[in-house]
Computed example of a mutant assay.
Amino acid sequence: MNATIFIGLGHMGAPMARLHSAAHPTFVFDVVPAASEGLAADSEATAIASLEAIPADVDTVILMLPTSRHVEQLLVDDGLFERLPKGAVVIDMGSSEPQSTQQLAKTAGEHGLGYVDAPVSGGVAKAETGELAIIVGGAADHVAHAMPHLEVLGGDISHVGDAGAGHAVKALNNLLSATNIAAASEAATIGAKFGVAPDVFIDVINTATGMSQASQVKFPKHILPGTFASGFAYDLMLKDMKIAMGLAEQVGFSPVTTAAFETLSEGREALGERPDHTEVARVYEQRTGIELRASEHGGEEAR
């Protein structure tokens, strides 16, 4: 039976690899050995200490790495492309740069390999349940190879185009998501200044046409309680927004999302180390002095 190597066992990668190992023979690897060893101890996965020797039955590699630089380093600089058997398919499920993905797909083809970009959306909660939204780019035959693996991890899988298209759509999704959080925070701040408590404001918006995933999920679960613990980092959000803004340059007109990107980039410095992406709301709190937390009192009394 063919096997998979799952590389990258962070907040998202670990639960994804655990689910994958229950359905397919899976080797796991991380630059932190304890991560792969720990996952293997409580799942069906098998930990490997090195990628220097690839198990003979491996025909799929799944990557869940932070950036394109990490992907390029692993596949090209460290030579993983050269060690994989002909016909194997690499599935990059991180949020990489579309132009880098296109080049990597070309290089993979030169080595007789397939390449699929399949970034995910849904956060840690849906990674744990296998209900991620997966946005797929790649040639049809490579995507067909990847589908049995993706179906274990996602509940909504969309093939949107050739290599790089999945990463382009993912970056644009995160640009829109961050802009939605900023817009909801801005509106809630204005409402609070007028005397409407943030939790009351969000409850009403969620029954009206202004609702969004930001108002329906981010505010109730992470912002109003003041926990800011979605599991997705503010810095990764900015990285994805920057990728999307690079794509926007080809259009030459993106005033709304450009303003959001600039505002959230400028607000980053005051958030301390490793802020959660839902701390977009704290940027507004700091700039206005109005706290966006649940309260029985209205407006500025909620501070």
Rank of each mutant, 00 (worst) to 15 (best):
F201N: 03
E301K: 14
A40L: 09
F81T: 09
G289A: 05
G130S: 01
I134E: 03
M12G: 05
V61T: 11
E273W: 00
N174L: 07
S43A: 10
M147C: 03
T107K: 11
E291C: 02
Y115T: 05
G191N: 06
L104P: 09
V160Y: 08
E44I: 00
E291T: 15
L63Q: 10
A233N: 02
I181L: 15
F81Y: 15
E44L: 08
G299N: 03
T107G: 00
A23Q: 13
V58W: 06
I202R: 02
V58C: 06
F27V: 07
G155S: 09
G154T: 01
L51C: 07
E301C: 00
H111I: 03
N206H: 05
V116R: 10
A144K: 14
H159C: 01
G231N: 04
F228V: 01
R274F: 10
A127W: 04
L74P: 08
Q99H: 10
P25H: 13
L153P: 08
M64H: 06
G298Y: 07
L247I: 14
Q286K: 15
A244M: 10
L176Y: 13
T101I: 11
K86S: 15
T4S: 12
E285N: 05
F81V: 04
H70Q: 13
G272P: 11
M12I: 12
K106L: 13
K193S: 12
R69Y: 01
A259L: 14
E37T: 11
G79S: 09
F253P: 01
V143C: 06
S68T: 04
E269C: 01
R83C: 09
D92K: 08
R18K: 15
D276R: 05
S295K: 08
F232V: 02
I190T: 13
G13N: 06
D199T: 02
A244N: 10
T257V: 15
A105L: 08
A214V: 08
T179K: 01
Q216K: 15
G122A: 03
L153Q: 07
A184M: 14
A208Y: 00
V160D: 06
A183G: 13
P225F: 03
A188E: 09
I5V: 14
H11I: 06
H297F: 12
S177H: 12
L150I: 06
D162E: 15
Q216Y: 02
E52L: 11
A244D: 10
H20T: 08
H111S: 07
F261M: 09
S96R: 05
A127D: 03
R287V: 11
V120L: 04
A208D: 06
E301S: 11
K242H: 12
R268A: 06
E301Y: 14
A88W: 11
K242I: 01
E273N: 13
T129V: 02
L224F: 03
G112M: 06
H11Y: 00
